[in-house]
């Protein structure tokens, strides 16, 4: 049976990585701390029911809590109607501008799509686990990821070309 010491050990080991995940969801460190504390508190309240691997459960609380907060605070974000403009990739300054544009685009993603991106490309979860975390099908995860990448102008095929070269 999972106990308090077990929970405290989990917090000590995982809180740093979970905090970074929370930050990528909300893009604000203070909010990320608040978000993670709330998620871990909710996890502790159900700790006895959590299985051997608490990560999916905690990720799920993180994503859902963030989505709830996002709905409440949606006016704080300003979605952009225009996608970030492409720049010359050989220009160093332009490259910096390109990353900033992607950041802006990331903040403009709906919370669900942002969660898919973060869980897939930062937490390195397979689509099946992401689907379980978000409570949807793997096909939905793939379609959400596809839409998000399109908005970010990320070309999934580019990785293969890059790794193959």
């Amino acid at each position: 049976m999972r106990d308090r010491a077990d929970f405290e050990r989990y917090v000590a080991e995982r809180s740093s990585r979970l905090l970074r995940t929370a930050y990528l969801l909300c893009r604000d460190w203070a909010t990320a701390e608040d978000l993670l504390q709330t998620a871990l508190a909710k996890a502790w309240l159900a700790w006895r029911r959590v299985g051997d691997n608490p990560d999916p459960y905690v990720y799920r609380i993180l994503v859902n809590t963030h989505a709830t907060w996002w709905r409440r605070r949606w006016r704080r974000e300003t979605p952009a109607s225009a996608l970030p403009e492409a720049i010359d990739e050989h220009d160093a300054l332009a490259a910096i501008g390109h990353r900033e544009a992607i950041r802006q685009a990331l903040t403009c993603l709906p919370p669900r799509q942002r969660a898919v991106i973060v869980l897939r490309y930062f937490a390195d979860l397979p689509d099946q686990e992401i689907a379980e975390t978000l409570g949807c099908s793997p096909a939905t995860v793939r379609s959400q990821a596809s839409r998000a990448l399109a908005r970010l102008r990320v070309d999934p095929a580019a990785r293969a070309i890059q790794s193959g070269s």
Binding site: R99, Y121, F122, L152, P156, A158
Partner: peptide, 11 residues
């Protein structure tokens, strides 16, 4: 033309 961002760059 817009330049594609790679998944690796996204990571």
């Amino acid at each position: 033309m817009p330049t594609a961002f790679t998944e690796s760059e996204l990571r």
